[in-house]
Design a protein around this nucleic acid. Structure first.
Lengths: 131, 131
DNA sequence: TTGCGCTATGTTATACTATAACGTATATCC
DNA sequence: GGATATACGTTATAGTATAACATAGCGCAA
């Protein structure tokens, strides 16, 4: 299943499960609520530490424009596409796109580029519903 | 100078001036501090209202990955490039890039696409300094 | 086996980012 | 003058994130 995973702790596994079960990114405090349902008293650092570890393991990423978190499985490569109606998020492949951008920047001396690309709008399904 | 400007209020002009005078994006609370220096008591909504109006006027934009704000002049088109060493931000033109992404999404039925593209790394100057 | 270092977690407190809700002042138009 | 609209002041609170310190468990070497 995972890539980059290496024996997750139970905290981390629990957070990851919740994110994978959701059909949209979750905020840290939504996750906190779920954890508290599961286990009683849980404090924010518990959630944030799990999020940090999972992000470093490449298993989740933060959706900056939503201040929320999603499993990498749903959001794969470089470009995150977000439907503002139904809240779903997916990744789209963008082969040439990232490379050409990278080349441009490297040519200008810019180093260690890491990009965030997020697109908001309405997905096909939701756009149809309005027709 | 401005485009999209239409008689700014003095609040808005003051916020815009601070952002234009800075050499890096500023957070809302940094701006709040400056306003308090200038004028005494100022509360967060004053700053956030100005930021909202300026954003709607196309004069500034939020840098999502920094939770901070920059004048559009320094960040012009679609791609924001951020140096994590010196904090400076600039916009780079990316002609084909946005269009090809847009076409892709439209072809899939995705509507009203608005993209956020931010690149972190080290600018040429800072990369040199490490050499 | 004891003690050390390491990692994860618990716990408390606080910092930082953003908005809700309501009141007041001013301008404009009729 | 009264109605409306806009911006701003003010108070309070919601929402996001981390600092700092304490504790527990594990692996391992002396």
């Amino acid at each position: 299943m995972g890539q980059g995973a290496d024996h997750l702790t139970s905290n981390q596994a629990q957070v990851l499960d919740h994110l994978r079960a959701a059909n949209a990114p979750m905020t840290a405090y939504q996750l906190l609520g779920r954890m508290q349902n599961d286990r009683g008293a849980v404090a924010p650092p518990t959630v944030y530490r799990a999020l940090k570890a999972l992000e470093e393991a490449g298993l989740i990423r933060r959706i900056e424009t939503l201040r929320a978190w999603a499993p990498v499985a749903t959001v794969r490569p470089g470009v995150v596409v977000i439907c503002d109606d139904c809240g779903t998020v997916r990744g789209v492949e963008a082969p040439g796109l990232l490379e050409s951008l990278h080349e441009r920047l490297v040519a200008e001396g810019f180093a260690d580029a890491r990009q965030t690309i997020e697109v908001h709008g309405r997905c096909g399904d939701c756009a149809e519903d309005r027709a």
